[in-house]
């Protein structure tokens, strides 16, 4: 195998930068815990410069460390789908945003990449798409860590079979969305005073009129909207991947080895409908 035209039989072990991953994850968790437990000077005397700074630096820095740890692990086949996941996120998210919808639909690309190429690629897609979207819409920027979390969780859910049946997908979406909503709430509160679209702000207003603190109201709203959003996103992604030709799915080792789509990820699918036609 010393031929110059062939590669060594075993693929070179990908360097893993687990230190960066651990650091990034720890920074994000620490930031969240700090924001929620310390709840620095909620409202009373202005908004506390430390809180917004911590949320920006902690979540962005944590996201950057995660991406730095993930990049060396990515194969070329995962690498080429991340940009298209990012482009899908932004393109569809812009449309949904401009229509003033109550849901964001800005994670379709992230979840799609996570289902096909795994949790690491999904997390990188989420973090980088919010970072890049920040170029067009700066309000997306601080949510990078939350988006990475969505990609990570979607990939793990896919690995454990959430996309093998279409009715599992909304359940997984509900759980992932709830977690994502809880994580995103402090960012929204401390960076922007929970400003969002009219739809999401109306929900916050309801809780505020019942006397909730802003962070509590925003968290409840996050639980509602993000869950609904991720239920729709997961169902849409499930329906898209079921409609993919096998050849397109097979090019992803993750989807193949973990049988992410059930029998659709490997051998020929049994045909679902139409076999009963009256035609000869």
């Amino acid at each position: 195998m010393s031929s110059p035209l062939t590669l060594p039989p075993e693929p070179a072990a990908q360097r893993s930068r687990s230190l960066l991953l651990v650091l990034g994850g720890a920074l994000i968790v620490a930031t969240y815990v700090f924001l929620v437990t310390v709840q620095p000077t909620e409202i009373a005397g202005g908004m506390g410069s430390a809180a917004s700074l911590v949320s920006l630096v902690g979540f962005l820095g944590g996201g950057a460390l995660l991406v730095g740890g993930i990049l060396p692990m990515l194969t070329t086949s995962s690498l080429v789908v991340i940009p298209l996941g990012i482009a899908l996120n932004i393109a569809i998210g812009q449309i949904a945003g401009s229509l003033g919808m109550q849901i964001y639909l800005d994670a379709i690309g992230t979840v799609l990449v996570a289902v096909l190429a795994g949790p690491a690629a999904g997390a990188a897609t989420g973090a980088l798409s919010n970072a890049l979207w920040g170029l067009f819409n700066p309000f997306a920027l601080p949510f990078a860590a939350g988006a990475a979390l969505i990609g990570l969780l979607a990939g793990l859910a896919a690995k454990h079979g959430a996309f093998r049946r279409v009715y599992f997908a909304p359940v997984a979406g509900l759980v992932v969305g709830a977690i994502g909503g809880i994580v995103a709430a402090p960012v929204a509160v401390f960076m922007f005073g929970a400003a969002g679209t009219f739809g999401t702000n109306a929900i916050i207003a309801v809780f505020r009129s019942m006397g909730d603190k802003l962070l509590v109201a925003a968290t409840k709203q996050g639980l509602l909207s993000d869950s609904l959003d991720k239920i729709v996103v997961f169902v849409v992604v499930a329906l898209i991947v079921y409609a993919l030709p096998q050849r397109a799915v097979r090019q992803f080792p993750f989807a193949r080895t973990h049988r992410v789509l059930g029998e659709r990820s490997g051998g020929r699918a049994t045909t679902p409908a139409g076999a009963d036609t009256a035609a000869r």
Binding site: M1, L5, T6
Partner: peptide, 20 residues
């Protein structure tokens, strides 16, 4: 002048696409 042989098995050589 260099021959790469394939038998349809998983142990087949993997071509270095960059060199090829």
């Amino acid at each position: 002048g260099e021959t790469v042989r394939f038998d349809g098995s998983p142990a087949d050589p993997r071509i270095d696409r960059a060199a090829w």
